[in-house]
Design a protein around this nucleic acid. Structure first.
Lengths: 125, 125
DNA sequence: TTGACATACAACCAAACGGTTGTATATTGG
DNA sequence: CCAATATACAACCGTTTGGTTGTATGTCAA
């Protein structure tokens, strides 16, 4: 409902919409990595990778911890789960549609045949 | 592994990174809607909404079906699920990290204390 | 102290994005 | 046939994005 929620969703999906950032997420979810060790993995400047890390950090998908002169990044699995739950909500909306169709079919059993066409696969509820 | 998979992921996350498009997804997952009926719901031009629908269609998140002069859009729940499974894979990477830490702890029980710090909540596997 | 390393950040640039208006093309109803 | 409706798409425009280089700051090691 809140606009802030939508802002968060915008930031999360946007952060994940870049393949380099998704790859960074895989690495930092597997374990801590300094920004420079991450940068060494990609064919682009250090500054570019640092900006990608900053985008992920602003979205809450990773956090950083100082260790001497290095900045160690670690993936925030809870943020990943929050994105998954947004998708679950979308799926729930779809399930609601199926339930409504089922109810219709239950009310007038013989009237509507072939109402669920091939493009909407009727799977488990 | 394939670049095309990453292209698909780029398109899916990008398509979902806009709040208007996410709202359109909620509507078309709940049931079929013509492009103009969708456009009527938003404070922007018909063309803008039509472009949003096109972005979602190109990403495979919805499909259209002609009905007379109307174009009826319907949400593709399988595409939504495919995004969810990408996030599940990310979560699996994280779970792998925890497993590795557990194994380390099992090998040398007393050496590593407080190895899992406060920023990495140790939850269920 | 000095130099090498790790990071941060500003300025710049081309391309993509999200919106607009305008025009063209089908399709329906009278 | 004609007018209204529904859609598609091109052209344009300001902003954001994803990259670059250059510079500044902080930390470690000799």
């Amino acid at each position: 409902m809140d606009t802030t929620d939508e802002d968060r969703a915008d930031a999360l999906f946007h952060a994940l919409s870049d393949r380099t950032r998704r790859d960074i997420m895989r690495r930092v979810l597997a374990g801590e990595h300094s920004v420079s060790s991450l940068a060494a993995s990609y064919d682009m400047s250090f500054a570019a990778v640092q900006k990608h890390v900053a985008v992920l950090e602003r979205a809450g998908l990773l956090s950083k911890r100082r260790s001497g002169r290095e900045q160690l990044a670690t993936g925030e699995v809870d943020a990943v789960r929050s994105v998954a739950s947004m998708l679950d909500e979308l799926e729930a909306v779809w399930r609601g549609r199926i339930d409504r169709i089922d109810e219709l079919l239950a009310r007038s059993p013989t009237r509507l045949t072939r109402f669920t066409d091939s493009s909407s696969p009727d799977k488990e509820t």
